[in-house]
């Protein structure tokens, strides 16, 4: 067993344990954190496969953005643990059937001869990132653009579905607030620090009269 194999087994063990903890953890926040750990270990395994671009994107997109929002939502939810576990036995048969189907599908895909063939060893001085970019911009340019459009539609759809009109809050216009000049609101008046000493007693006398 060489060093790479050792790293692979360590990462795979962490991945499996973390994935198990995702579904067994009682606290939803712990489950999300374990999911993050699982994704990170998967990124490590991808680096071992010399797919460093995909691994970095996995970490950047899923851990850096998607899971942050996941964590956001899970932390803010008021989750009732007992109600969450209520229907466990009722849904168990359905879950077992679904899990069996997924295992079956995975088995079919992985036992396919296309996946069992070892990939061609990558040339030492060809950058994975460069090749991927070239492929995306030439051969797969239409599917790539299509995926982008689908994502854009999803983005706009999410905004349209959740936007319920502007609430009548204290909405100020930040641009107008930034453009405010002190001269419009504040008048600076020149005032002498001290009054003239000889003039003062005379004024007081006049006041007294």
């Amino acid at each position: 067993m060489n060093f790479t194999d050792f790293v692979f087994f360590v990462l795979a063990a962490i991945l499996i344990i973390a994935a198990l903890r995702v579904i067994t953890a009682r606290n939803p926040v712990h489950a999300v954190l374990n999911l993050i750990l699982a994704l990170f270990s998967a990124g490590g395994i991808w680096i071992l496969l010399e797919a460093e671009f995909l691994a970095m994107v996995l970490v950047m997109v899923y851990i850096g953005a998607v899971m942050v929002l996941f964590l956001f939502v899970v932390m803010m939810l008021d989750i009732d643990q007992d109600r969450l576990r209520q229907g466990f036995w009722r849904y168990l048969p359905l879950g077992v059937v679904m899990g069996f189907i997924i295992v079956l599908e995975l088995g079919l895909v992985l036992s396919n001869r296309y996946f069992l063939e070892m990939p061609v060893a990558p040339a030492p001085d060809i950058s994975n990132t460069r090749l991927l970019g070239a492929l995306l911009a030439s051969e797969y340019v239409y599917p790539f653009e299509l995926a982008a459009v689908v994502l854009l539609v999803a983005l706009v759809g999410a905004v349209v579905l959740t936007f319920r009109g502007r609430k009548n809050g204290h909405h100020g216009d930040p641009a107008a607030q930034i453009r405010v000049r002190a001269a419009d609101r504040l008048r600076i008046v020149q005032m002498p620090v001290e009054k003239d000493e000889p003039a003062e007693p005379q004024k007081e006398e006049q006041g007294a009269c």
């Binding site: 990124g43 671009f53 994107v57 970490v59 950047m60 851990i63 850096g64 942050v68 964590l71 994975n128």
Partner: peptide, 21 residues
Amino acid sequence: IDASLLYILAIGSMSVYGLIL
């Protein structure tokens, strides 16, 4: 490494977890 800029973006984006947690 070849993708060092991506590595910086990827690992840098993880520092937010410390704050949230």
